[in-house]
Write a protein that binds this DNA or RNA. Sequence first.
DNA 1: GAAAACA
DNA 2: TGTTTTCAACGCTAG
DNA 3: CTAGCG
Length: 311
Amino acid sequence: MSKREKTVVEVEITHPDKVLFPGEKITKGQLIEYYRRVAPVMLPHVEGRPITMHRYPRGLRGTSFIQQEAPEYFPAWIRREPVEKREGGITDRVVVDRPETLVYLANQACLTIHTWLSRAGRLEFPDRLVFDLDPPEGGFSLAVFAARELRRLLTEELEMLPFVMTTGSRGLHLAIPLDGRADFDAVREFAREVAEVMVQRHPDRLTAEVRLAKRGGRLFLDTARNAYGQTAVAPYSVRAKPGAPVATPLEWKELEADLEAQKYTVNNLFAHLDRRGDPWEALRQQRFSLVVARSKLDRLRADFRPEPLFA
DNA sequence: GAAAACA
DNA sequence: TGTTTTCAACGCTAG
DNA sequence: CTAGCG
Ligand SMILES: [Mn+2]
Ligand SMILES: [Mn+2]
């Protein structure tokens, strides 16, 4: 990693008055200003991670698309990382490593940024595990319940310290910093087994069923984010929803009262940040090993295994 | 949003 | 030249 | 392999 100063770059802004969120009349200029201002706290979380862009050039109501590859027409100062596709071939992916990139992407009408759970240089080895808590429509209280219970399992029984954020959509994410020694398959398998313990304990409220029809009003514990080339919404990313909600890292005590998945938006995020600072600051200094948690989980599962049935 | 294709 | 068309993902899971 | 899903 070079310590040389990056040269200053100017980002040309086009159509700053174009309304991207018609409900609140939030313009592209306001989106750009949001990302410019949040950059100092957002950058450390996304640095080095390949991203996926969710672009809405005609605003929230217009057609959108997901962009994975860094196009040639992006300026040369945008960092690109060559990435192997699982099924052969290499593509260049954008990696955010400076505030100007966030500004440039906002000008491209990229409302939402998703990131890999690994970073350039060790793309096969995630440094973050994400439990994606997906409640049914209107079931945010289920997400709060699941977050509390999952936190208790992780801290009291597996000796890991998870961090929580609103996704700005419907649910919550729990994130755990990893030491990068386990590959995606091992991390995902671990997450899946933790999820299955949770489902066993609360079968009426939680499920690991991918099929919507089989969830039956239960919260989906989505562990498939923990895979090579897969992504999760970035902390402090805006979501493409009315009100311009923001994926917002929280302190655990905030999980108590009047929380909602879309509580924080581009219009009130900085008040939260002024009050709390970055609640995930400490995440960046922790590094949990899967080895210890693995063996504790195995014991747990053995205890929960049903008694052998006799014919 | 921007490049390519078209009139 | 101005206008219209085209393009912009991918990996896991269950069956 | 495909459909569903995120
Ligand atoms: Mn989710
Ligand atoms: Mn999900």
